[in-house]
Amino acid sequence: MDVQLTNLQRLPRKKIKQERDEKMTEEHSEDDEDTAFAEFSNPVPWQKIEAEGLDCDYALLFSKEEADRLFKQLEGEVVYATGEESKVQVYGKVYNIPRKQATYGDAGLTYTYSGVTRLACPWTPTLEYIRDAVTKTTGQTFNFVLVNRYKDGQDHIGEHRDDEKELDPLCPIASVSLGAARDFVFKHRDSRGNQSCRQIEPVKLELAHGSLLLMNPPTNTFWYHSLPVRKKVLLPRINLTFRRILLDSKRESKPKPGVS
């Protein structure tokens, strides 16, 4: 299922959350709408993307001019991993990552995925600026970002879920895209591979230059996502996935979605 990201409805993040509440009536007074808008300094038009167990919101966060500037600044600021830090472990085997990768965030934070633990580098000025723009738009706070740079359409990332134990299960993952537009594909866990037990159509969308995709709970419980190879794409892309990592003292006290 291809998602057409057009005719976006102008709704701030707060109102989208409210509409999920079954107790909310269909009608809103103009005063309520004005109050909701006032709580955000940078409301943007949002596109809702939904399927069984999939809940995402998509918007153009930055204009082309600003996105161009941010991309150029990140090219000069971000230091990507090299050597052993540029490898991942999959089913006991070590592979080179088919893209460049870096981790930034609050002091002392670490993030473990694919058998590798990464220490967060201090925020750069541009990463802080983008993080703060995401916070103003969504009302969510983030203390860590994973940076992926794809040199062209040959660089890619395979099917995976962002469901590591360090992540706050109640916080969405905010994905900011800069550079070449790329296809982004969701696939339900029950419809993957030879052992698939259900026929559920994948959800595919194109992530544009300057866009923001929010993957809300419980999306990463039920859906894998990937950025497949696209040989016709010749330009680079930088993707920033902002996350909220729990401190050790909080991990045991916060349940995962669906667990009481």
Rank of each mutant, 00 (worst) to 15 (best):
residue 222 F to I: 03
residue 77 E to R: 07
residue 16 I to L: 09
residue 47 Q to S: 11
residue 166 E to H: 10
residue 61 L to N: 05
residue 98 P to T: 10
residue 4 Q to T: 05
residue 231 K to N: 10
residue 169 P to I: 11
residue 185 V to F: 07
residue 129 Y to H: 09
residue 202 P to T: 03
residue 95 Y to L: 14
residue 114 S to N: 15
residue 110 T to S: 15
residue 74 L to R: 02
residue 173 I to P: 04
residue 135 T to F: 03
residue 204 K to M: 08
residue 115 G to L: 12
residue 31 D to N: 05
residue 214 L to N: 01
residue 37 F to R: 10
residue 1 M to K: 06
residue 190 D to L: 08
residue 44 V to W: 00
residue 41 S to H: 07
residue 107 A to D: 13
residue 60 L to T: 08
residue 22 E to N: 02
residue 31 D to M: 08
residue 97 I to L: 15
residue 3 V to D: 02
residue 115 G to R: 03
residue 199 Q to P: 00
residue 31 D to F: 06
residue 43 P to N: 09
residue 120 A to P: 12
residue 176 V to D: 05
residue 36 A to F: 06
residue 210 G to T: 11
residue 87 K to F: 13
residue 36 A to E: 12
residue 239 N to Q: 15
residue 205 L to M: 14
residue 158 G to R: 09
residue 57 D to Y: 10
residue 51 A to L: 02
residue 135 T to V: 12
residue 229 V to N: 03
residue 222 F to W: 11
residue 109 L to H: 13
residue 227 L to K: 04
residue 248 D to Q: 11
residue 49 I to T: 00
residue 165 K to Q: 07
residue 80 Y to N: 12
residue 92 G to P: 00
residue 120 A to W: 07
residue 157 I to G: 13
residue 76 G to P: 00
residue 158 G to A: 10
residue 117 T to W: 06
residue 201 E to T: 13
residue 48 K to Y: 05
residue 93 K to R: 09
residue 93 K to Q: 10
residue 142 F to V: 07
residue 236 P to Q: 13
residue 83 G to D: 13
residue 11 L to A: 12
residue 14 K to R: 06
residue 250 K to L: 14
residue 237 R to F: 08
residue 29 S to C: 10
residue 226 S to N: 14
residue 94 V to R: 14
residue 18 Q to C: 02
residue 103 T to H: 15
residue 179 G to Y: 11
residue 8 L to Y: 04
residue 18 Q to W: 00
residue 44 V to H: 00
residue 179 G to D: 14
residue 241 T to N: 13
residue 124 T to A: 05
residue 12 P to G: 07
residue 56 C to H: 00
residue 223 W to E: 01
residue 246 L to Y: 13
residue 245 I to E: 06
residue 231 K to T: 08
residue 193 G to V: 08
residue 42 N to I: 07
residue 192 R to Q: 13
residue 4 Q to C: 04
residue 119 L to G: 13
residue 250 K to W: 14
residue 113 Y to R: 11
residue 217 P to D: 04
residue 13 R to M: 15
residue 128 E to K: 15
residue 26 E to V: 08
residue 153 G to D: 01
